[in-house]
């Protein structure tokens, strides 16, 4: 009945048995906080994001931070040797993590990362796609949907233009990218459930 944290946002999946549940959570929180701050810094650089109301900026970040992190950290999932690199720098095989209790979520994140990396996007394309992931007008709790929608459309047009210019013979890439959005939503939902269950535990 040992507890493991199979999220790569941890230094390692091993949990110190002498720590209380609260201490374990605090340590985990300490690990993912810098990554969340980086997402906020990224959002601030999206042209037009800071023109949205503060309420909507927070709502978009609350809803989309995990999805942005999945895209940004897709490279932690090494599809070839089936390993995951944790923040501490150590790699763990899928089999090892499976024995520690990982399941559907980690497998799904592997599949997602593999398909995303296979598209061979440049850093600029990946950044613009990440902005599209974050600025979604159908997130709950938005007070000015029209403004978010306008920014979302601008970003999607820019992404399509960039992809079309960089990959003139691969018109399906843009469509494939847009199809990644519902995949990310599903991962987000499963992740939230598991994380909340862990925190309660």
């Amino acid at each position: 009945n040992r507890l493991y944290l199979v999220c790569p946002m941890n230094i390692s999946p091993h949990v110190n048995l002498h720590k209380t549940g609260h201490e374990v959570w605090e340590e985990f929180s300490h690990c993912f906080t810098p990554a969340v701050r980086e997402v906020v810094e990224f959002a601030k650089k999206i042209p037009g994001f800071r023109d949205l109301s503060q309420h909507d900026q927070v709502s978009l970040l609350k809803a989309g931070t995990f999805e942005v992190l999945v895209v940004r950290f897709a490279s932690l999932f090494n599809v070839k040797d089936r390993t995951v690199t944790f923040l501490g720098g150590n790699k763990y095989s899928v089999e090892t993590l499976k024995a520690m209790g990982s399941g559907y979520l980690l497998n799904s994140m592997f599949d997602f990362s593999e398909k995303l990396m296979n598209l061979g996007l440049s850093e600029e394309e990946m950044s613009l796609f990440t902005a599209v992931v974050l600025v979604s007008a159908d997130r709950s709790g938005l007070e000015n949907v029209n403004s978010v929608e306008a920014l979302q459309e601008t970003l999607i047009r820019a992404l399509r233009s960039l992809i079309t210019r960089n990959h003139p013979n691969e018109s399906a890439i843009f469509t494939k990218l847009l199809l990644k959005l519902p995949d990310l939503r599903s991962l987000n939902n499963v992740h939230s459930e598991q994380l909340l269950a862990f925190k309660v535990h």
């Binding site: 929180s29 906080t33 701050r37 906020v40 601030k44 927070v58 609350k62 809803a63 909340l196």
Partner: peptide
């Protein structure tokens, strides 16, 4: 748990990170 981000403490981190920027803008 209708608001996972708040329950997980994400909202607090996000607000603090954004607020620094908003204060800069006011300056």
């Amino acid at each position: 748990f209708s608001d996972p981000a708040s329950n997980l403490g994400l909202e607090d981190i996000i607000r603090k990170a954004l607020m620094g920027n908003l204060e800069e803008r006011q300056d």
